[in-house]
Amino acid sequence: MILIAESINIMSKTLGPAMRERNPKPIEEMARAEAEAGADYLDINIGPARKMGDELMEWMVNTVQAVTDLPLSLDTTNPVAMEAGLRVCQSKALVNSVSLQPDRLAAELPLVKKYSASMIGLLWGKEGMPRDANERCLHTVDLVYQANEMGIPNEDIWIDPIVSPVSVEINQVKSCIEFMSMLGEIAPGCKSTVGLSNISNGTPTQLRPQLNRTYLVMLMKYGLHSAIVDVFDSELVKIARGEMPEIVSLVHRMMDGDKPDLASLTPKEVEYAKTVRVLNGESLYSHSWLKI
């Protein structure tokens, strides 16, 4: 499991101002901390960056590369900024992201090819969010075809099925898992990734990690290749590194229909079991889901 660290983000209260003021110190510290926490990639999210985005992205890439050799995921909707970043990346970068809107495809695919980068293929269609697993499949076929036409091989395409919050629409949470079970057949050789933390958007802050971890394990059942995560959640990192096989086995058994007796489980297992029941739609989400 490849972990892409999510914390270098223009939305951050400390890093946002540092980016705008070109103050390297907080950014270097965050990059070092993410690397130490076990990240495989660092995401650099500068947002839409309409003004001077190219200069900002170039500076960000250079700033981060000064303290770590980890490969980077460049996250902006501004193609000029994207190219400025790709130009100075020292290792194979990940373009985050290419979606199916025609202008995005036209702007981003040639960059992926030109810089021999990888790309996140975000399954966001012309009409927005895919409604179910089937629409995700359609979008995948379309996106992979267009990328292949441009000469980008499947191994460089990381499909992102789009995770939506548990408290918004449970059917989307289920569709995303269902789609992951189909991806291997639809697009052999393609990789996958998700913006994991979105599953817990809108839930109490201290409870978010439990949702993130459990959903990660559920997606792992179908071979999830990577995830953009809060790499400072050490339990999540342990899961990704294969250090919690009992939990993984419990979650996967439940996904196959096993209904364990909660009284026979450890307190930690109970938390995972209750969270699986919420995320697979058996039990409706509420903020107190762990307490009932």
């Binding site: 408290s167 409706l284 989400y285 509420s286 903020h287 107190s288 307490k291 009932i292």
Partner: peptide
């Protein structure tokens, strides 16, 4: 909002 409805019922029960 169904999730909030469930949550309030839990809180009142508690």
């Amino acid at each position: 909002d169904i999730n909030l409805a469930k949550q309030l019922n839990i809180l009142l029960g508690n």
